[in-house]
């Protein structure tokens, strides 16, 4: 056994700060969405699912709080943006991005990870800090964050930033994208937590301590 440095301190801080910040953004966002919950999934004119079913807001205590929701949303947006900018700048400055951004091996590798997780591929996955599926997921979620900021600005200042609102397909289209991205975060969260549990404590602990316990390779044994 030996210790292997995995996640740099500032990546960990930024990751954990994002937990309460994103929670407040989604929570307050739902308080705002309640006032005009217009989105649903329709196939061939039939409503498959309405966001959200009756009882959802009551169960979570989200109704009749539009003003409260807006105030929290327009306060915590600053933390969301600043933390996001810090994370992206840090990963570039530290070179950490090389482990995170997809490369030419990523599509094939990501497919292998999916096959592996579905127990179709039996062979172990190639070594590396992040596998192909992780590269896609972790880069994707940062791009989703950027999308939330852009569509959020388009909704926040649709006259002063009319060009941005137009770029998002108009005011209502910007709202739809902004909402869809939020559903995307929830989906990301569910899969992320499931994968962290599957990967085990040694992996999860690395996001707390920064270090992972690695099984010794022959070279290190005789080092």
């Amino acid at each position: 056994m030996r210790l292997e440095a995995k996640h740099p301190r500032w990546v960990r801080y930024s990751h954990w700060l994002n937990v309460p910040v994103l929670f407040v953004m989604i929570w307050s966002g739902l308080m705002i969405y309640w006032a005009h919950d217009a989105h649903e999934i329709r196939i061939a004119g039939r409503v498959l699912f309405h966001f959200f079913p009756p009882g959802f807001y009551d169960a979570l205590g989200l109704g009749f709080q539009l003003a409260q929701g807006m105030a929290w949303h327009f306060a915590f947006m600053w933390l969301f943006v600043l933390n996001g900018l810090f994370y992206v700048s840090y990963t570039f400055w530290s070179g950490e991005w090389r482990h995170l951004v997809p490369n030419r091996h990523t599509p094939y590798e990501a497919l292998q990870v999916v096959l592996h997780d579905l127990k179709i591929r039996k062979a172990p996955l190639p070594p590396g800090k992040f596998n192909g599926a992780q590269r896609v997921a972790y880069t994707g979620v940062v791009l989703m964050g950027a999308g939330s900021v852009v569509t959020g600005l388009a909704i926040y200042k649709p006259t002063q930033l009319a060009w941005l609102t137009a770029l998002c397909g108009g005011y209502q289209c910007a709202r739809t994208i902004h909402f869809a991205l939020t559903i995307g975060y929830v989906a990301f969260f569910v899969i992320h937590i499931a994968q962290v549990i599957r990967a085990g404590w040694n992996n999860a602990r690395a996001m707390l301590t920064g270090y992972e316990l690695a099984v010794e390779t022959p070279e290190t044994t005789h080092a």
Binding site: M1, R2, L3, A5, R205, T209, G210, Y211, L213, T220
Partner: peptide, 29 residues
Amino acid sequence: DPRTHLVGPAAEAEIRRLTRRSLLVGGVA
């Protein structure tokens, strides 16, 4: 990083210490 030179029981003791510290700091935060 001097910690990465730790092997065997020393490595395991160190990660236990780091975990305690992280959980404490995280808990307080």
